[in-house]
C-alpha cells in the first residue's frame, strides 16, 4: 500500500506534465487493459454502440433497405403529436412501471425484513418460495390457465359457482382486466435480484448497532427500522431500486404471452411493444430508434429520480 500511495503522489511531480504521467501509468498497467479488453469489446459492441446507433438513427428514416435520409426531429414530432397509439403506450408504461416498480420494491423489502429474524433454515425455505417465480422461466403462463376465458378456468368457475357472475369473463381479452391482471402477474415474478440483495443487506447490519440503539432509547422495531436498519443498508437500497426499476420497464413479454400482440384495444400496449412493432415487424428502423431513445431516457430519468429519493432515507 505504501508503495502505491507514494506513486500516486507523483501526480504533483515537477518533471512531467499530467499527460505524460497518465501515459506512464497506462504503460505501467498495460496488463490491466489486456484483462478488460475482451469484456470491454463485447460491452461496446452490444451495449454502447447500439445505444449510440439508435440515437443517431432516430434522426433518419432508415428502413433497413434504402439509404437513409436525415429527417431531424420528424420522428419525434410524429411520435408525440401524430401517433395516438404511442401516447397510449406511454400512459400504459408509466402506469405499469409506476405500480410494479414501487410495489415490487416494497414487497421485496418487507418480505426480506419480515424473514430476517427467522432461523436460517426457515429463512432459506421462505426465500425460495418468494424467489422461485422469478427464475422459473415461463411458469407465469399458468395465470392464463387460472384466469382462462371459459368456465373451465378456475377463477371463472369459482365466480360462477358462488353466483357472483353468470357468464365467464374473458379476462385477458377484456380491456378492463388486462392491465390489473398483468400487473399482478408481473408482481408475482418480480421478487428477484433486489429481494436477494435486501436479504443480504439486512443480514449484514451489525447486531451491536441494534443493541446500542436499544440503549439509546429506540422503542420498537419501526423506529429501529427507520433509524438504524435503513440508513445502514442504503447501498443495497440503491442497488435494489435500480434492479426494480429496470425490471418494471421490462415486463412487456408477460403482456404479449398472456394477452397476445397487440393486446385488445391496446389495453396492455407498452412502449416496448411499440418498439417491437415498428422495429421488428414493420422495419421502420428510424422511427423505432426514436422510440428506443425515448424509452432509454425515461428509464435513466426514473433511476436518477429514485436515486435522489433514496439518498434522503433516514436523514
Amino acid at each position: 500500500m505504501a508503495k502505491q500511495s507514494a506513486e500516486y503522489k507523483a501526480v504533483a511531480r515537477k518533471d512531467m506534465t499530467y499527460r505524460q504521467w497518465i501515459w506512464k501509468e497506462m504503460k505501467r498497467n498495460w496488463v490491466a487493459y489486456l484483462l478488460i479488453l475482451p469484456y470491454v469489446l463485447i460491452f461496446t459492441a452490444f451495449t454502447i454502440l447500439p445505444v449510440l446507433l439508435s440515437v443517431v438513427l432516430s434522426f433518419t428514416n432508415f428502413n433497413m433497405l434504402q439509404i437513409p435520409d436525415i429527417v431531424w426531429l420528424d420522428n419525434y414530432i410524429n411520435l408525440f403529436f401524430a401517433d395516438d397509439i404511442f401516447l397510449t403506450a406511454c400512459t400504459n408504461t408509466l402506469i405499469f412501471a409506476g405500480i410494479v416498480g414501487p410495489a415490487s420494491y416494497l414487497m421485496s423489502f418487507l418480505v426480506a425484513w419480515f424473514i430476517n429474524e427467522l432461523s436460517p433454515k426457515v429463512r432459506a425455505i421462505v426465500t425460495l418460495i418468494f424467489y422461485a417465480p422469478s427464475i422459473s422461466g415461463q411458469v407465469y403462463l399458468i395465470w392464463g390457465t387460472l384466469f382462462s376465458a371459459d368456465s373451465y378456468g378456475w377463477v371463472n368457475s369459482f365466480l360462477m359457482e358462488t353466483g357472483i357472475k353468470t357468464e365467464p369473463i374473458a379476462f385477458f381479452k377484456d380491456a378492463d382486466y388486462v392491465m390489473p391482471l398483468c400487473i399482478i402477474v408481473a408482481l408475482w415474478t418480480s421478487l428477484g435480484t433486489s429481494f436477494l440483495s435486501f436479504i443480504a443487506g439486512l443480514q449484514g447490519v451489525d447486531r451491536s448497532m441494534y443493541e446500542a440503539g436499544a440503549v439509546d432509547g429506540v422503542k420498537n422495531r419501526w423506529q429501529e427500522l427507520w433509524y438504524i436498519t435503513l440508513p445502514s443498508m442504503k447501498p443495497q437500497l440503491m442497488f435494489g431500486a435500480i434492479m426494480a426499476i429496470t425490471g418494471a420497464f421490462g415486463f412487456g413479454g408477460i403482456v404479449t404471452a398472456l394477452c397476445g400482440f397487440p393486446s385488445v384495444d391496446y389495453a396492455g400496449h407498452t412502449i416496448m411493444h411499440h418498439l417491437e412493432d415498428y422495429g421488428g415487424q414493420r422495419y421502420e428502423t428510424g422511427y423505432a430508434s426514436a422510440i428506443a431513445t425515448v424509452l432509454f431516457l425515461i428509464m435513466i430519468l426514473a433511476n436518477m429520480l429514485v436515486k435522489k429519493i433514496i439518498s434522503k432515507v433516514g436523514s
Binding site: 439508435s54 412487456g252 418498439l275 432509454f296 428509464m299
Partner: peptide, 9 residues
Amino acid sequence: MFHSTVTSI
C-alpha cells in the same frame, strides 16, 4: 439502469 430491449433493434 436500462433494459436490453432498448438496444434490441
